[in-house]
Design a protein around this nucleic acid. Structure first.
Length: 534
RNA sequence: GCGCUCGUAGCUCAAUUGGAUAGAGCAUCUGAUUACGGAUCAGAAGGUUGGGGGUUCAAGUCCCUCCGAGCGCGCCA
């Protein structure tokens, strides 16, 4: 890996200049500006003070030494600004990425092995099985699945899990409301008044048990919705199954044995304030019923028995719940940091600049299905993933449904379709593609060609970064940038035609194929398709 | 009131987690095609990073403070 070679070269140069001790962490990063080269190190600035040196002078000496002893693949080393040491790669090392991408293909290109032999559990969506998945779950669904894809790309074995709150008072109210609709009556005051229940009741057989049929119907609808945006869960975990198999009792007993429980006012309390929460929480109410928290503890305890590392994707309205859940896991003897809880901020929907009301007066929510139907699955996923989940997001449904260049997903997919178009045009012209080993890639010297290769060259590292930070929006941003490079190449460099030699056509054919592999790989991490035509 | 998350171009968002002149897209203005899909490309303009203070070689990023926004604060789920 070139990165390691450059760091080693920097360490050698520091040693050569008598900087002792050579720091363990030598910073190396991708500069923001093209003229600052392909790689940049701030090491001269970092060590200047302790070494008693002027940073610019030290940087200059480092660059001069490294330029005189260039590592493989480096064309030039120079100093810039306050003392940054910048490495410029030669064209050959950029050409090599074509061979790599082609040899590996979309599935392996950009892959890593850091997660090999490690299991990671990602729980997301977990919508109540008594209504359709609503718009509020959309962001978490796209995000959870994409970080799962990123983890898989990095070698982890991933469990995608969906938790079903299928017991308790809400489910009873749901069943009663469904039964009322079946009789043609309005549900009770505290029941479920959404109009979807009228449709569900019409589908329900007369002799069906409302709770069982309704639960099954809801789950089937969730599964269909998720499937339509390429989200497939490995595990649908039932809350009520933990009653049947005693896991809730076992979890309570476990906490009790660890001294984390006490009785007061007839209720059973968890000492969450001993574990970072602001106050203690009730697990068993004085009327003998469990709070929501008790089975949730049992559920996470069970997840820890199946995977050492847990990721939860929760909506912003659950953030107040984080401290007690992590506290409960700590009380059970787990490392609280092995449960990582990602909070996704809210999404505001608009249509043509007008705010979309999230729920009607009958209690009907805008559903995820509504959004998918309006925008299409690819545009929905790409748009939800374009932005960091740390900040609130505004999505205009009218805009993302349009197949125009305002819409980044079509811009990126178009780059792929164009490459496919080129490839079929070339094939139709009777030009055979030669094996890559027989092609002279060094003919690729046009600035547009090199721009594509530079972006592609960054991709594997970008995947690692996006996975480490659980930030799929970085992949989306890379795709936009990369697609721009591809469109620029397309505009200025013809693969086949007047003035393009047969040798250059061959080299460019492999360039676009490598680019195509990068596009497919990146889009797949977002769960977005790579169409051959638009 | 307390807590969590935020505040970046007219709009929607980035910024390699403390790095160089804060970058893209849209919108606005100006250009480009006898050839692979113009659904494209190139250029211009657009900023006191909510205000103020601090930390250091270096702050959009870290600390303090004020202003503003969203969400949450039950023996509900």
């Amino acid at each position: 890996m070139i990165r390691d070679q450059l760091i080693a070269a920097l360490a050698g140069a520091l040693d050569h200049l008598g900087i002792a001790p050579v720091p363990e962490n030598i910073g190396l990063e991708r500069p923001a500006r093209r003229e600052h080269g392909d790689w940049s190190s701030n090491i001269a600035l970092a060590v200047a003070k302790t070494a008693g040196r002027n940073p610019r002078e030290l940087g200059t000496e480092l660059a001069e030494h490294l330029d005189a002893n260039r590592p493989d693949g480096v064309a030039k080393v120079d100093v810039a600004g306050p003392g940054f040491v910048n490495f410029h790669l030669d064209d050959a090392s950029l050409h090599a990425i074509i061979t790599t991408a082609v040899a590996e293909g979309p599935a392996a290109f950009g892959a890593h092995t850091v997660g090999a032999d490690q299991v990671i559990n990602v729980e997301f969506v977990s919508a109540n099985p008594n209504k359709p998945v609503h718009a509020g779950h959309a962001r978490g669904a796209c995000y959870g699945d994409s970080i799962a894809r990123l983890f898989e790309k990095c070698g982890y074995e991933v469990q995608r899990e969906n938790y079903l709150n299928d017991r308790g008072t809400q489910m009873q109210a749901f069943a009663a409301s469904l039964a009322a609709r079946k009789r043609g009556e309005e549900p009770a005051e505290d029941g479920y008044h959404g109009e979807y229940l009228i449709d569900w009741a019409a589908e329900m057989p007369d002799d069906a048990d409302p709770l069982e049929w309704g639960r099954g119907h809801a789950i089937a609808s969730h599964r269909a919705t998720m499937s339509s945006v390429n989200v497939e869960f490995d595990i649908w975990y039932s809350e009520r199954s933990m009653v049947a198999d005693g896991k809730i009792d076992a979890a309570l007993a476990d906490l009790g044995e660890r001294g984390a429980l006490y009785e007061e006012d007839g209720a059973t309390w968890f000492r969450s304030s001993d574990f970072g929460d602001e106050k203690d929480r009730v697990l068993v109410r004085s009327n003998g019923e469990l709070t929501y928290f008790a089975p949730d503890i049992a559920y996470h305890r069970d997840k820890f028995s199946r995977a050492p590392k847990l990721i939860n994707v929760w909506g912003a309205d659950h953030h107040g719940y984080v401290a007690r859940m992590k506290g409960a896991m700590q009380a059970l003897g787990h490392d609280r940091d092995e449960l990582e809880i990602i909070i996704t901020q809210l999404v505001r929907l608009e249509r043509g600049g007008e705010s979309v009301k999230m729920s009607g007066r009958a209690g009907d929510m805008v559903t995820f299905d509504d959004i998918i139907a309006e925008a299409g699955p690819d545009a929905a996923r790409f748009t939800y993933l374009m932005q960091s989940v740390d900040t609130e997001q505004t999505i205009d449904l009218e805009l993302i449904a349009q197949k125009v260049m305002d819409n980044p997903v079509f811009y990126v997919q178009m780059a792929h379709a164009r490459i496919r178009s080129i490839q079929s045009k070339v094939a139709d012209a009777g030009v055979a593609t030669l094996p890559i080993r027989d092609v002279d890639l060094s003919l690729l010297t046009h600035e547009r060609e090199l721009a594509v290769l530079r972006e592609l060259h960054e991709y594997p590292e970008l995947v690692a970064l996006a996975a480490r930070e659980m930030a799929p929006h970085k992949v989306a941003n890379w795709l936009r940038q990369f697609a721009a490079a591809v469109h620029g190449f397309y505009h200025d460099c013809y693969v086949m035609g007047d003035g393009v030699s047969a040798e250059l056509t061959q080299a460019r054919l492999w360039l676009v194929e490598a680019a195509r592999i990068g596009l497919v790989s990146g889009l797949d991490l977002l769960g977005v398709s790579s169409p051959d035509s638009m």
